[in-house]
Design a protein around this nucleic acid. Structure first.
Lengths: 197, 197
DNA sequence: TTTACTTCTTATCAAATGTCAATGCAAGCC
DNA sequence: GGCTTGCATTGACATTTGATAAGAAGTAAA
């Protein structure tokens, strides 16, 4: 099984050489899920992270009325996880499932330590990912408290044009914090202003 | 100068012994700011984090129209920082200023490495703080995309009853992503329902 | 093909929230 | 005391967004 995206990730982002990659390759574990299948459900302890080799995942919470609040999408080369649950070994309150049939690489402690064994710089790269994640969340909060639905949608389209094309609109609406109907209206208004997607 | 909160933080959260604390004590640097004074302005590189020994700080962004979007408050024993800017050594897009006259401890690389020198566990505690921060941000996003202004306000009061009493309402409104007028109305509605703050 | 199902759109009405303006209130200052 | 200033509240009105229902288009299954 070849994993071009994961290979690229470890070499370009993780700083591993081609040779170091071959050393950790035997330890790689993958997990495939079909569309709608779950990788994590609320109540379970999230024991590891998932790297998306191919496909699309979503990370979401359910409120009391059963409405889904989508916190994140993940396409190729993204990592999804309830890091809090992994780190503190406590039950998660989130769900992860697949939007398309998806092939993931399982990033558990065992694998991470193999990678660190061959290249200790990987720890730093890992912290970099964490820091980037926080940055991203800051931006997300800033938009949610300060921008209109229209502005948030434009920002989304601009940042994730690929995701736009691969997930249904009602999920994008959930991500943006509005109803599918509202998103439809926003899109219509933009179309009238000659907005080209 | 005695710093009871910072001392408590290093010992209880950081895992240092009393003796280890005395060893790093000489390296502690503090910075005092008066109300409205800045600790960070957009455009500057945030070169370190601040631990709040006494007082209240706010962390916010400005949008194009000059409106403040408050991302975070920090009272005693909280740490504020644009971690992204610190880590990547890039200019920040955020502001930090004081709501009350505030005494902070400056957490720069030099100090952190002194702490790690006497107790290497501190690194792990530091990661714990990061992970908690992410958790907190997830919760914040979930509320912003899925809960009404009223629910967000109740959650805020419940989580930060102390902050409630120390910052003006218009700032809380900004934190919640609504106007001060709306917050006033939410409060009135709650008062009519016999809500006791 | 027909049927069922999902997604997206549209329309209507209601509720939530924003905008603008006026007022009241308390703190600080002369 | 009288004055200013900033904050909170209130009211009237506009805008945005939600709720509900209905319909159109596409897809998959029978």
């Amino acid at each position: 099984m070849s994993l071009p995206n994961f290979r690229k990730f470890l070499i370009e982002k993780g700083g591993l050489s081609e040779e170091e990659f071959s050393q950790v390759e035997p330890f790689i574990k993958t997990k495939s899920v079909t569309s709608y299948e779950f990788l994590l459900k609320a109540g379970e302890v999230c024991s590891h992270s998932f790297f998306v080799e191919q496909g699309v995942l979503r990370f979401y919470a359910l409120n009391e009325e059963g409405k889904e609040n989508i916190l994140q999408f993940a396409t190729e080369s993204w990592i999804v996880s309830d890091r809090g649950s992994v780190f503190f070994q406590e039950p998660s309150t989130y769900y992860i499932d697949a939007i398309e049939d998806t092939l993931t690489v399982v990033l558990d402690d065992a694998f991470i330590s193999e990678v660190v064994k061959v290249n200790s710089n990987f720890r730093i790269q890992n912290e970099k990912l964490l820091q980037n994640h926080i940055r991203h969340l800051y931006k997300r909060v800033t938009l949610l408290i300060g921008a209109t639905a229209k502005a948030r949608y434009l920002e989304f389209v601009n940042m994730y044009p690929d995701i736009m094309l691969r997930v249904p609109q009602w999920m994008i609406a959930s991500y943006l914090g509005i109803t599918p109907e509202s998103l439809s209206r926003v899109r219509k208004a933009l179309a009238n202003e000659n907005f080209k997607p």
